[in-house]
Nucleic acid binder design. Structure first.
Lengths: 244, 244
DNA sequence: ACAATAGTGTCTTTCAGACATTATAAT
DNA sequence: ATTATAATGTCTGAAAGACACTATTGT
């Protein structure tokens, strides 16, 4: 803003903007990427599914609003939710994106570990996890937002350590690899993946006195925690120029 | 927005938000990264320098507003300006970022070739190019926005062909290398840079019947145009984990 | 002749892809 | 035994870093 407020600019002079946040909450479940959706109970788009979200209140930032909505929609406490990765995606401002009024929405992507089915904490009675690739037509421009969010997360896995945000505090390398394979929709070579993760300083850190967790069959896997690193140098590039 | 408008929500019920755009317009000049700033003629922050920007009008998107402001502040036509690279950065929404009222700002980064000194086309009488690294304290939260913009551009040079956006339609590989060195603040090995650029399909395309442009002394350099490629696979990583 | 910039070629190191092999568990 | 998953090791090829060398201009 800021530079050129028309002299004597009156905030109430023309129809105001509403500012909202929309959340693409992702998790990896059963080797599929899932996104949290809520069913709309009122028009417009009554009966459609939509990304959870809500208005930014007069005295809070968009970040705060997003964090608050994340807690409400997942039914978890603010404390729990504060550990989840939440990042701003981009802002959607088409004048006609909401038929009721001028609504500018700041979209966020949240990455959470596998959670229990959401209990309807907020005003959205029905919230569910959906497969992120086949969400059918969503309300408003949420198909677009969801697609953008998916793209961004996929891209960030390449050059950041973000994948651990999908995992519980202690995880196996197999689980971490599942995250990559699921988000990218490709299969990775396990030995090469191990090598890359383990030789990147600070990506993961072995849990000492190594307890081992069994994934059912097979040899138990060593456990790791997320390391201190945040960036991946050099990056872990996906096999081909994929998008989904 | 969208999910949970309180039933019977009245847009005028509480103090409205203003939505603005702020622009970080970058160019490379004399081997230094420059950013376009305007001097504020009124309070708050009277006399401070600020990123150009302005209000989003009731019937336009933030993108349109940013493009419009870019034309106004550079004094160029919308047609000229439509060729420049303009991308959304992120949105700043701290409740106290503007002392006058609640202002949410969508920030954009614009990359332009070396332009003539801006003529005050808009209401901002004084607009100037400043060294992007030492802009002194700017108005509002614009120091933060500028730093974020610089970081983002630096990061995008690694995995995109964006550097050509700083160059005129025809440019030499030396000029392209200057862009990288200037934005990253490092020196690159020329032979290796050449090899990387020329072996990346679609990054640049040689101008046939090669006219050659002299940069003063030395051997004349071949000219290139930006290619069709938009992404860089594999990326062109900067030497160390730098940020400025 | 010399300085300055453009361009080529080569050696070495790093790292990713491919894939064989061993290890440890459940059935 | 068989199957399933985890972990190690090795070979190869692609690409980056370092750097020597040639080419073409202005002064």
């Amino acid at each position: 803003m800021s530079a050129n407020a028309p002299a004597g600019y009156d905030p109430h002079a023309f129809e105001p903007f509403a500012v909202t946040v929309d959340l693409a909450v992702f998790t990896v479940r059963d080797s599929r990427l899932h996104v949290l959706l809520v069913e709309r109970g009122a028009d417009p788009y009554k009966g459609y599914w939509a990304l959870p979200g809500g208005f930014v209140l007069p005295r809070e930032s968009a970040e705060s609003a997003a964090r608050r909505e994340l807690a409400e929609e997942t039914g978890l406490t603010e404390g729990t939710v504060s550990a989840f990765h939440l990042e701003q995606l981009r802002t959607y401002s088409d004048p006609d994106r909401d038929p009721r009024m001028r609504v500018v929405s700041v979209a966020y992507a949240a990455l959470v570990p596998d959670l229990p089915e959401p209990r309807g904490g907020g005003d959205a009675a029905s919230a569910r996890w959906w497969d992120a690739r086949t969400p059918g037509p969503l309300a408003f421009d949420h198909d677009r937002i969801l697609a953008d969010a998916h793209d961004r997360i996929g891209a960030k896995l390449e050059y950041s350590c973000l994948a651990t945000a999908f995992c519980p505090p202690e995880f196996t390398l197999g689980e971490l690899q599942q995250v990559y394979e699921t988000v990218w929709g490709v299969e990775l070579d396990r030995p090469n993946f191990r090598r890359k993760v383990l030789t990147t300083p600070g990506f993961v850190q072995a849990v000492e006195g190594s307890p081992r967790r069994t994934g059912g069959r097979g040899k138990p896997a060593a456990l790791y925690r997320a390391g201190a690193a945040t960036a991946l140098h050099p990056p872990l590039l996906r096999p081909e120029g994929r998008s989904t």
